[in-house]
Amino acid sequence: MLEIIDIKKSFGKKEVLKGISLTFEKGNVYGIVGKNGAGKTTLFRGIAGLETCHGKLNSEFDILKNHLGFLPTNPIFMSKITGWEYLKLFSLARNVKEDDFEEQNIFELPLSDYAEHYSTGMKKKLALMAILLQQNDIYILDEPFNGVDIQSNLIINDIIQKLKNLGKIVIISSHIFSTLADNCDQIHLLREGIIVKSAEKAEFQSVEDEMITDIIGDKTSNLRLK
């Protein structure tokens, strides 16, 4: 179980997270939705320990980050590193002795090419593969479907279900509500640094409706389309 209690974060005077408390159970998939700037990435970085936040994090692990795989929205790549070397770096970081990535290369990535030359989707898939190879217990996937082709979307959906069945905790954010509805057991709507709604599967439609109202509202009428 992972529990976050009253997580707060400010950048200067701007309060990005205003006291978020959530509980994540093993074998469950959680979705965090909210429009740009709602605080999703800051929350994820806070849980991962990449951002210093106020509040409390409880888990069964002494050092949470050593059991946590974090897929950033825009994965970072070093220049002149091949896909294979990137995977090796991540494996070594968690003492996973793995040298042959061909079998695990389910996205059929050109692992001998420089990763910096990969397309956006390929970079995302490589970064996802890297954290999966680490055999983590908790996965935070920030926009895992962004820029990824439809076939790989299906594979990612399947991976999420496999992780769930293995008893892992998976936390996802996505702008595509349907991908969350398909995968998640619970969805939290984040607005201006506060969780304004939490919904179980049966209530997902109400979250989507609220999200649409939140994002679109009456804005398009301002265009005065004729």
Binding site: K80, I81, W84, K88, D99, S112, D113, Y114
Partner: peptide
């Protein structure tokens, strides 16, 4: 932006020496 890959003897221990 070339994809010519320079082989290195440091493959098993990324990354500073590879780059």
């Amino acid at each position: 932006n070339v994809n010519f890959k320079v082989p290195t003897p440091f493959r098993s221990r990324p990354f500073e020496f590879i780059i």
